[in-house]
Each structure stands twice: as C-alpha cells, then as structure tokens.
C-alpha cells in the first residue's frame, strides 16, 4: 500500500533521498504526501516550495510543481506564487533555522496576512545541513557545534509565534505520532488561510550525537515521553503536564484570506468597467 503512495506522489528516479539514516524528515515528508493523497488534490495544482536546509530538499523528491528557493525565503516566494495564481495549493516545507531564524520575518508576515499557504516546519532543533549548529529551537543548555559550552539562547515556541502573528490554523505534530500528523496536515491544507504545522523531527546525526541522545529510536521514544496531546492536557492539572511539550491542534479559526480579499478589490473595478 505504501509503495503505491510513494509511486503516485514521488519522483521515483530521484529517490533515495539524501537524508541520514534515522532522520525524522522522511516520516514527515511521507505524512505530507499521505495527506495530499487522502485529500485527492489535483497534483498539477499543488505547488511545494522550500528554502534551504535538510528539510528543503524534500520538494525535489515530490511529484508536484516544486520550487527550491534561497535560505529563509520560501514563504516570500510562495506568497508571490499564491497571489499570482490563487488556484494553486501552495505548501511550504521549511526547517527551524530556515523558518524562524533567517526567514522569521516572512513567517510573521505570512501569518499576519493570513495568506492561503500551508507551512510544514520540519523541526529538528539544529542546523543539520551545515553540520550541527544551534538554531532558534535548540533547547537552552543543549549543545551544538556553535554552542560548545551549552546553548544560552532560549528557544522559540513557533506555534505561539504564528498564533500571535495571525495564522488561522496552528498545530504541532511529531515524527513519532505519524497518524496524527497526517490528520493535522490534512486539516492545515483545508484551512482557507495561513496554516503552520510544527512537525517535530529528530536529527540523530548532529543533534542526537552532540547531546548524547542515543539512536534515532531512542530519540523518537523521547518524543513520545516528552509530549502530551493538548486535549489530554486540558483535563489535567497544570503540574501534571507543565514540563511536557504540547502537541495537537492549537488553533483553527476563520479569517478573511489574503488573496480572496485582493480579488475583491479587482472585482470592484470589474463591475465599474
């Protein structure tokens, strides 16, 4: 069954991918393909845009309209594409460094505009492509090649950032909870507005090794142990989950979508003509 999913949605001649053994990105990429497949989207109308980094290699493997842009700028390119042709289902694949460091401004403003783009953030807490430097989601006190004495930065909660900036769909899934992640991505694509999915991944090669996290399986198990679904948490007293990472759907609201609002301006003049 899965091979059909792969052959229907991937460029078979471009596989295998370049990611390291044990990398969580493959699970997230497959979850995205599965969500697109489940929604039966017209493949020629799907446009997948990425920036630079490990995550951003994903579009090259996926059999849609695909664009691999410059570091941090995927959302800005995607904004141009979506505004120029609102019929396209524009999906951005980005990483924690790409999206929240060099591209942080574009995340804020794409959220603010509520433009109909779905962003899947492959969050592995590290710059993997360049060999393990700390990123804006690297936990405090963790190690990276540029944090040899422990990270003194505090990490971003990108879901809260997107929520505050105006994104209308915000959720967090993980490479461990793959079935939930597929559902989340489906809903994020269905949202008529800007969606952010913080997809927690694992990087055993750099983050794992630097921080003595063990194997990929150990790291995925750690995701299981350190997360709690927001629906479960809501029924518990705070001290039962305050140290855990919340996952699930945080926000699903309706607000005017940017390109639809722009079309209204165009239509106003159509009538006058």
């Amino acid at each position: 069954m899965s091979s059909e999913l792969i052959s229907n949605n991937f460029r078979m001649d471009k596989l295998p991918h370049i990611w390291c053994p044990g990398c969580g990105h493959g699970i997230i990429m497959r979850s995205l393909a599965k969500a697109i497949d489940n929604l039966k989207l017209d493949k020629s109308k799907v446009c997948v845009v990425s920036g630079i980094g490990c995550s951003s290699r994903a579009p090259g493997y996926m059999d849609f309209n695909t664009l691999h842009t410059t570091h941090g700028r995927a959302l800005a390119f995607a904004t141009g594409i979506k505004l120029a042709n609102p019929d396209l289902e524009v999906i951005v694949i980005t990483g924690d460094g790409d999206c929240s460091a060099i591209g942080g401004n574009h995340l804020i403003h794409a959220s603010r505009r509520n433009i109909g783009i779905t962003t899947i953030l492959f969050n592995n807490n590290i710059y993997g492509m360049t060999g393990g430097q700390y990123s804006p989601t690297t936990p405090n006190k963790s190690y990276g090649t540029t944090a040899p004495f422990g990270n003194i930065d505090k990490p971003f909660d990108i879901c809260k950032l997107a929520d505050a900036a105006g994104a209308t769909y915000v959720a967090r899934g993980t490479a461990y909870h793959a079935n939930q992640l597929i559902k989340i991505i489906e809903k994020s694509i269905q949202n008529n507005g800007f969606s952010l999915v913080d997809a927690i991944s694992v990087c055993p090669t750099y983050y794992g090794r630097k921080n003595k996290k063990g194997s990929s399986v150990d790291m995925l198990n750690e995701i299981k142990d350190m997360t709690i679904d927001i629906k479960t948490a809501e029924k518990l007293p705070l001290d039962k989950y305050k140290d855990k990472l919340l996952i699930g759907e945080f926000k699903n609201t309706e607000q005017p979508e940017y390109t639809a609002e722009y079309q209204k301006i165009i239509n106003r003049f159509k009538k006058e003509r």
């Binding site: 845009v49 664009l67 842009t69 410059t70 700028r73 800005a76 390119f77 995607a78 904004t79 141009g80 594409i81 979506k82 505004l83 120029a84 042709n85 396209l88 401004n105 574009h106 804020i108 403003h109 722009y262 301006i265 165009i266 106003r268 003049f269 159509k270």
Partner: peptide
C-alpha cells in the same frame, strides 16, 4: 494593477519583494 486584473503586494522587506517577484513570474505573470 488591480484595474487591469493584476496583483500588487507590499512585502515585509526588500528581500521578500524580490522573492515574491520571482514567485509571481514562476506562476506565469
């Protein structure tokens, strides 16, 4: 631009302006 069915967007910075311009062209405009 809206008078001729075209699109204008003021982006958040110069870099985004260039990126979106390329995006618009790749989408055919």
């Amino acid at each position: 631009l809206p008078l001729v069915g075209g699109k204008f967007i003021q982006m958040e910075d110069e870099i985004a302006g260039m990126a979106a311009t390329i995006g618009g062209s790749l989408a055919g405009l």
